[in-house]
Design a binder for these strands. Structure first.
Length: 129
RNA sequence: UGCGUCUGCCGAGGAAGGCGCAUCCAGGCUUGGCAGCGAGGGUCCUUUGCAGAGGAAAGUCCGGGCUCCAGAGGACAGGGUGGUGGGUAGCACCCACCGGCCGCGAGGCUAGGGAAAGUGCCACAGAGAACAGACCGCCGAAGGCCUCCGUCCCCGCCAAGGUCGGUGGCCAGGCAAGGGUGAAACGGUGAGGUAAGAGCUCACCAGCAGGCUGGGUGACCAGCCUGGCUCGGCAAACCCCACCCGGAGCAAGGCCAAGCAGGGAGGAGGUGAAAGCCGUGAGGCUUUCCGCGGGCUGGUCCGGCCCGACGGACUCCCGGGUAGGCCGCUACCGCGCCUCGGCGCAAGGAGGAGUCGGGCAACCGGCUCCCCAGAGAAAUGGCCAUCCCCCGGUCUUGCCUGCCCCGGGGACAGAACCCGGCUUAUCGGCUCACUCGUUUU
RNA sequence: CGCGGGGUGGAGCAGCCAGGUAGCUCGCGAGGCUCAUAACCUCGAGGUCGCGGGUUCAAAUCCCGCCCCCGCAA
């Protein structure tokens, strides 16, 4: 039953969790979304949202959040596991579910690959971390 | 039938299904590691049943509740409101009425007290702008000068001079009716009057002030009499008058857990009174009162409170810790029962629905029924499939209507302590009353 | 969520409280000076005073309502 669920364990809820993801400086973006990411040890991804007031009024911002959550919920199995994501929508774009889904999956995997490369270079040069 | 004015109201696409969110309750698991505690939190599974955004939730423009500021008291300052009467917990809101302005009209707008308490301002233009003024203009009677004519005096006649009368010009001077300026120029019409004129005088009208009568709770309205003839506008300028207002705000405020480290600077004294104790004594000490001084009271003062010599009330500066949770928070509370955690009853509120009564209305009162989001990186959205509603297109045809099919659309907008209003944004529909015009009968 | 401050030529500001003329510096354009450029001198253009109402004869200014920008904190 839990394949499409979106309980609290799949969300970032505290400032410390957000700060950890932003502090890693690992991100990927296209013209729809900007995604920050950092690996976790939980065995599943987690989602956090940052929607600026510059995007629009409250109803418009809520629509963005709901669509991004829906894209995350319906495609959780296709995302990299063990990754915390913070998703920021771009200004001036009309939110659409298929575009958000496509961007989210692509950008999450880009973040995942950047972390893999960083891990390999740290294994080759263990003193530079 | 067209152009308009206006009253009241409804919905916020609907129905049902799935995924998912999410509130309450019960149980299990867990809390970076180790041992213990667990304010509380997180998560999972199952079950139960019930709720789950708005008319503006918005802007934060007013008014309250609630909480804290020392128990919030008086005066001043400051701020707000501004026709009258009513409604209300209260308001800058609502209703009714009055006055003014606009509109042919139905109607609309209206911060609408006081300018004969005081101060100030009224640019430019214009002659003159506040108890004003004389540019053009009108007059120039009485007064002065000049020109010309007539008359009379002097005289034989003329001239000159003088007297009286007249024509014309200039001046002193008079006037404010007309022109022109301006947003605004000390009333309008007519007659008398005069050198020309003028409320200078009179009649009527308009306006002002005072008084009386009648109507209305009142703002005010109607009528009559008297007066002086005139006395501008701006108080959303200061101000005066009447009424109202202490300040901050749920990030208020209370509590729990965890954690830390403090340091520096400034900072006020009388020997006045009483009592007690010590001392042979000069005197010393303690308490209380008085006086003085310092400080706090989030504008000031009074009032109130705290403190006053090796210890300090209070103020300022530097530095350190926390950024978690609970209550407030939405039905607690009260009463009863009991296994002390719940259950039942009842209550609650400027609450909603219905109904009856009062009132022109806003609104009020009685009765019956209902219990209505409580999240906390923030929930109702989104997606999938079906039907109905709205708009456009297409298909047989010149037009209309209906069906099928295709396409598109359903606005403004998201609770964050809670109410009452206002303002602003915005989709669709229903409805009451009425004006002006056109056509027909 | 609550509370403050501001919007004036291209840029940064004055003027607003006590209403009648929108001003200053830099920049821009033309001319002069110079062999030339800069500097300097002279002249000039450029402003719906955020928007809409109201008060007033008259509003950047006073009053009301909206829009936008910036700041503060338990």
């Amino acid at each position: 039953m839990g394949e499409f669920s979106f309980g609290r364990k799949y969300r970032l809820q505290h400032r410390k969790e957000f700060d950890r993801v932003f502090a890693s400086r690992v991100r990927a973006g296209d013209d729809v979304l900007l995604v920050y990411g950092a690996p976790n040890l939980l065995g599943h991804p987690r989602l956090g949202l940052t929607v600026s007031r510059k995007l629009g009024k409250a109803t418009f911002r809520n629509r963005w959040k709901r669509l991004i959550r829906e894209a995350f919920r319906l495609n959780r199995r296709q995302l990299p596991q063990e990754l915390d994501l913070v998703v920021i929508p771009r200004a001036g774009v009309q939110p659409q579910l298929d575009r958000v889904t496509q961007s989210l999956i692509q950008l999450a995997w880009q973040v995942r690959r950047k972390w893999d490369r960083r891990q390999r270079t740290e294994e080759k040069h263990p003193g530079s971390g």
